[in-house]
C-alpha cells in the first residue's frame, strides 16, 4: 500500500515539477519539488526507498532530455542513497535538522549539476550560485517545510521510531 502510494506520489511530483513549478516561480527561481520528495522518502523510509525512488524520479526527469540523459538519474540516486543512510543516524524529532540537511543537499546538488554541465566561466559559476542557487535553497526550503507537514499527515506515510 505504502509503496503504491509513493510511486503515485513520485509521478505526481514529477508532473508538478513540469507544470506547476514554473507557475509558482519567484524572480525566476523554481522550487525543486522532485528533490523535496526524494528527500522526504529517503529520510522517512530509508535507503532502499531512497535508492529506487531517487533512480526512477531521475529517470522520469531525464527521459525527455536526450542531451543529458542519465545525469539526474545518477544524482538523485546518490542523494537517495546518502539521505537514506542518514535516516539511521538522525531521529526526526527535530524538523530543523531535517531542513538544514535538505538545504545542504540542495546546495550540493546545484553545485555538482553545474560542475557536470560546465559551460560557464568561474565568475558566472559563482554568480549562478549567488543569484540562483542560494535563493532556490531558501525558496525550496520554505516549500519543503509546507510539503513535509502535509505529507506527514497522510497516515500511510507516517513512520514510527
Amino acid at each position: 500500500m505504502r509503496l503504491i502510494l509513493i510511486i503515485i506520489l513520485m509521478i505526481i511530483f514529477v508532473a508538478l515539477q513540469i507544470s506547476l513549478a514554473p507557475i509558482i516561480s519567484v524572480i525566476g527561481i523554481e522550487p525543486n519539488l522532485i528533490l523535496i520528495f526524494i528527500f522526504f522518502v529517503a529520510f522517512s523510509f530509508g535507503q532502499t526507498y531512497g535508492i529506487w525512488i531517487g533512480f526512477f524520479s531521475g529517470f522520469l526527469c531525464d527521459i525527455f532530455n536526450s542531451t543529458h540523459f542519465g545525469l539526474n538519474m545518477g544524482l538523485f540516486l546518490i542523494i537517495g542513497f546518502i539521505i537514506g543512510s542518514l535516516k539511521e543516524r538522525f531521529y526526526k524529532e527535530n524538523i530543523f535538522i531535517e531542513i538544514i540537511i535538505f538545504a545542504i543537499t540542495l546546495l550540493l546538488y546545484e553545485i555538482i549539476y553545474m560542475l557536470l554541465l560546465w559551460q560557464f566561466s568561474i565568475g558566472v559559476f559563482f554568480f549562478n550560485i549567488l543569484r540562483y542557487s542560494i535563493p532556490n535553497i531558501c525558496y525550496s526550503t520554505i516549500i519543503c517545510l509546507i510539503l513535509f507537514s502535509l505529507l506527514r499527515k497522510v497516515p500511510v506515510l507516517v513512520t514510527r521510531h
Binding site: 514529477v14 515539477q17 513540469i18 507544470s19 513549478a21 523554481e30 525543486n32 522532485i34 526527469c61 531525464d62 527521459i63 525527455f64 532530455n65 536526450s66 542531451t67 543529458h68 539526474n72 549539476y113 554541465l117
Partner: peptide
C-alpha cells in the same frame, strides 16, 4: 506529449 522539467534544459516531446 511530454515536457522535460530540467533546470538547465527544458525540452519537449
Amino acid at each position: 506529449i511530454g515536457k522535460n522539467p530540467g533546470l538547465y534544459n527544458k525540452s519537449l516531446i
